[in-house]
Amino acid sequence: MMRSVREKYSCVLMLLALALLLAALPARAGSRLTATGGAGSIEGSAGGGLIPWAVLTGTASDTETGAGVGMSHAWLDDYQLHTLSAAVTINNRLELSVARQILSLDTLGLDSLQLDIFGLKARLWGDLVYSRSGQFSAGVQYKTLEDDALPLALGARQGHGVDAYLSHSKLWLGAAAGYNLLSSVSLRATRANQLGLLGFGGPKNEAYHAVWEGALALMPNAHWALGMEYRQKPDQLNGLPEDDAKDLFVAWFPQKHVTATLAWLDMGRIAGLDRQQGVYAALQLAF
């Protein structure tokens, strides 16, 4: 328990340091429009919360560098998932991200699981707003558990793994009676159990799974987005069925540097406990 508390504090300190660093930089924003960097995701890559989108963090355009830091918390029925992340975008071409997820297992009488995620996402072609065919990106995420004892005991094969995904996003200007729509679909190759928090691979399946993820959002004005996300997850552990995840979200972009997200998140069954649902809140600072 002590270790878990200390980890949480070190994370908060890390975030504070990053936020200070960000604040210390001359106040500037990239030239891309507000909200075109998405809202940050629990894996550190720019996205909508639950899934990455084809967009890159911040508002850096082709001649600019951007960055962002984010934190999120999900209060599920029997677990809490806490995430801290930071990302850098170079020339709206490449995004490097790091994230730390902490799943507290208090209700199981256990400590917590900590997963670190190192992400790389490249915009392949297109522009979210201006290209007819939208924006295509490809990304990889290397995920590693700080302590893999529990996941391995539950049947996972490894405590680390790599996800790869191809993503398409497009902002459909004025498509819904004059309002903007955002769509995003991704195809992911993964072996992760519960995003990797319960390790990688399992007795039911040794190979990579192809799973899809999608998001649809409506922007009632320039500062708000209402949407939903869906994320397919593999089911590889005996006796511990895993369901697809989904969320309904409201994102607020009060200005270019700040994104606040509130969502209703449904992760399905996690490690033998049914119906893990709850509120998800996230804050991202970016430029």
Binding site: S133, G134, V185, L187, Q232, P234
Partner: peptide, 19 residues
Amino acid sequence: LRTTPLLMVLILALITGCA
């Protein structure tokens, strides 16, 4: 799971096609 990639390709084709 097996049908998923096909679905994805269809969605992508639809999007780029329509566009």
